[in-house]
Measured scan of single mutants.
Amino acid sequence: ELSWTAEAEKMLGKVPFFVRKKVRKNTDNYAREIGEPVVTADVFRKAKEHLG
């Protein structure tokens, strides 16, 4: 699991709890794919757009 900024964690907190774990995993995987060592708010937004 990658490191997350406080802002990205806050955004994740707005995701319904029953899918939060999956969203975190998918976002981590997306960040790795694009070469990001940390999940930022920008990476979170891009993952959301990319993953739907």
Results as ranks from 00 to 15, higher is better:
residue 28 D to W: 03
residue 47 A to M: 06
residue 27 T to A: 08
residue 12 L to W: 03
residue 12 L to H: 01
residue 29 N to I: 10
residue 36 E to Y: 09
residue 12 L to D: 01
residue 1 E to G: 13
residue 50 H to L: 12
residue 14 K to E: 15
residue 19 V to N: 13
residue 46 K to C: 05
residue 15 V to F: 14
residue 52 G to A: 15
residue 49 E to V: 09
residue 39 V to E: 00
residue 33 E to I: 09
residue 1 E to L: 11
residue 46 K to R: 14
residue 49 E to Q: 13
residue 14 K to L: 12
residue 52 G to W: 08
residue 38 V to I: 13
residue 44 F to N: 00
residue 25 K to W: 14
residue 8 A to R: 00
residue 34 I to A: 09
residue 10 K to H: 11
residue 3 S to T: 14
residue 17 F to V: 11
residue 45 R to F: 08
residue 16 P to C: 07
residue 46 K to N: 08
residue 43 V to F: 05
residue 45 R to L: 15
residue 2 L to I: 15
residue 47 A to Y: 14
residue 32 R to G: 04
residue 12 L to V: 03
residue 41 A to M: 06
residue 41 A to D: 05
residue 8 A to L: 00
residue 31 A to Q: 00
residue 46 K to P: 02
residue 35 G to A: 05
residue 31 A to W: 01
residue 50 H to G: 07
residue 23 V to L: 09
residue 25 K to F: 13
residue 38 V to D: 03
residue 22 K to C: 09
residue 24 R to V: 03
residue 21 K to H: 15
residue 22 K to R: 13
residue 49 E to M: 10
residue 42 D to P: 04
residue 39 V to R: 01
residue 16 P to K: 05
residue 3 S to W: 12
residue 22 K to E: 14
residue 30 Y to P: 01
residue 7 E to I: 05
residue 45 R to W: 09
residue 31 A to L: 02
residue 38 V to E: 07
residue 45 R to V: 11
residue 5 T to A: 04
residue 31 A to E: 00
residue 13 G to M: 15
residue 30 Y to Q: 01
residue 13 G to L: 15
residue 2 L to E: 03
residue 5 T to Q: 03
residue 32 R to I: 08
residue 6 A to C: 07
residue 5 T to M: 03
residue 15 V to I: 11
residue 40 T to D: 05
residue 9 E to W: 12
residue 52 G to I: 13
residue 26 N to A: 15
residue 25 K to S: 10
residue 4 W to E: 00
residue 9 E to K: 11
residue 20 R to T: 03
residue 28 D to H: 04
residue 24 R to A: 05
residue 50 H to Y: 13
residue 21 K to T: 13
residue 30 Y to K: 02
residue 16 P to W: 08
residue 40 T to F: 01
residue 46 K to D: 07
residue 30 Y to W: 07
residue 31 A to S: 05
residue 46 K to E: 08
residue 46 K to L: 09
residue 30 Y to A: 02
residue 22 K to D: 11
residue 36 E to V: 12
residue 15 V to Q: 05
residue 33 E to A: 13
residue 47 A to V: 05
residue 38 V to N: 05
residue 4 W to V: 00
residue 14 K to Y: 09
residue 28 D to A: 07
residue 47 A to C: 06
residue 52 G to C: 11
residue 43 V to P: 00
residue 9 E to P: 00
residue 27 T to I: 15
residue 21 K to V: 11
residue 42 D to T: 08
residue 35 G to I: 02
residue 46 K to G: 07
residue 19 V to A: 15
residue 41 A to Q: 05
residue 4 W to G: 00
residue 10 K to V: 12
residue 45 R to T: 08
residue 10 K to D: 14
residue 44 F to D: 01
residue 42 D to Y: 07
residue 11 M to G: 03
residue 30 Y to C: 02
residue 28 D to Q: 07
residue 30 Y to I: 03
residue 1 E to Y: 11
residue 20 R to D: 02
residue 24 R to W: 04
residue 16 P to H: 08
residue 34 I to V: 10
residue 28 D to E: 15
residue 51 L to H: 12
residue 52 G to L: 15
residue 18 F to Y: 12
residue 11 M to W: 05
residue 25 K to Q: 15
residue 34 I to E: 06
residue 15 V to K: 03
residue 51 L to S: 09
residue 32 R to C: 06
residue 4 W to Y: 02
residue 16 P to Y: 05
residue 37 P to I: 13
residue 17 F to D: 09
residue 18 F to V: 11
residue 44 F to Y: 11
residue 9 E to T: 09
residue 48 K to N: 15
residue 33 E to N: 11
residue 6 A to V: 11
residue 8 A to E: 01
residue 33 E to T: 10
residue 23 V to H: 05
residue 18 F to K: 15
residue 31 A to N: 00
residue 35 G to K: 06
residue 14 K to D: 14
residue 32 R to A: 06
residue 46 K to A: 13
